[in-house]
Simulated assay, not measured.
Amino acid sequence: MPFTDRRDAGRRLAARLDRWRGSDAVVLGLPRGGVPVASEVARALGAPLDVVLVRKLGLPFQPELALGAIGEGGLRVVDPDLVRRFGISAAELAAVEAAERSELDRRAARFRSGRAPVPLAGRTAIVVDDGVATGASARVAVAVAGAAGARRVVAAVPV
């Protein structure tokens, strides 16, 4: 059954995550598409909402195809098979990463407006996005939550 929009997807996803209602969970949305989904999940669970910032590392000549992703705290996931298959040099990968790191830092300043992230130490982090293609962004988002001290990390997507 298709969703009418991301908010509808979030409400339906929240019903599947009901066991975390009233717990110590924090809902983390991946901007942009995951935030409206995560907002509905957080509201339904009565949990705090925050963002987890990641950026896809696209092929230099095909930016929509992810070689990997970077996240807050310097975390990085790269698919070495894709790097090898497409002959991406270390310099090319470094250039893509530098550009995306700059954008990630800009977005962190914009989304957080100087406030600190919701503390995750010892808590359950529910990482929400609106979908998964290669999984690179999801993997790095889960790693960011784990590095921030989450006791448990749950990846949740409606599709």
Rank of each mutant, 00 (worst) to 15 (best):
D81Y: 13
G149Y: 10
R112C: 12
V142L: 13
L30D: 04
G34R: 05
A99I: 04
S137N: 14
G135Q: 12
A133P: 07
F86R: 02
R110P: 06
T124S: 04
L104G: 12
V132I: 15
A143T: 12
P36A: 02
L59N: 11
E100R: 14
R16P: 01
R112P: 12
L67M: 14
D105H: 14
A98C: 03
P80T: 13
A99D: 14
A143F: 06
V140C: 08
S102V: 11
G71T: 09
L93Y: 02
A14F: 10
L120M: 06
A155M: 14
P63I: 10
I88G: 01
V96M: 03
L82G: 06
R151C: 11
R152K: 12
A15F: 02
A143Q: 14
V144P: 05
E40N: 02
R152E: 15
R55P: 12
A147H: 14
V52Y: 10
V77T: 06
G29R: 01
V77K: 10
S39P: 00
G73H: 07
E103V: 05
G34E: 05
V41G: 02
P119L: 02
G122W: 06
V132P: 00
R85P: 00
V35H: 05
R152N: 05
V142G: 04
A155C: 14
L17I: 01
R152G: 00
S113Q: 15
F111H: 15
V26K: 05
G33I: 05
G122C: 06
R139H: 09
A99C: 03
A94S: 15
A44P: 07
P117S: 07
G135Y: 10
A133G: 04
V140M: 09
S113Y: 00
G73A: 09
D129M: 01
A47R: 06
D79F: 00
D105W: 05
E64I: 08
E97I: 04
S39H: 12
A116G: 08
W20M: 07
A69P: 05
P36Q: 11
A90M: 01
G46Q: 10
R55I: 08
F86N: 09
E100C: 11
E92F: 00
V41N: 05
G22R: 07
A143S: 12
L65H: 13
G71H: 01
L104V: 08
L57Q: 13
A121S: 15
A148P: 09
W20F: 13
L104S: 02
A69K: 09
D130W: 04
R32L: 00
R21F: 05
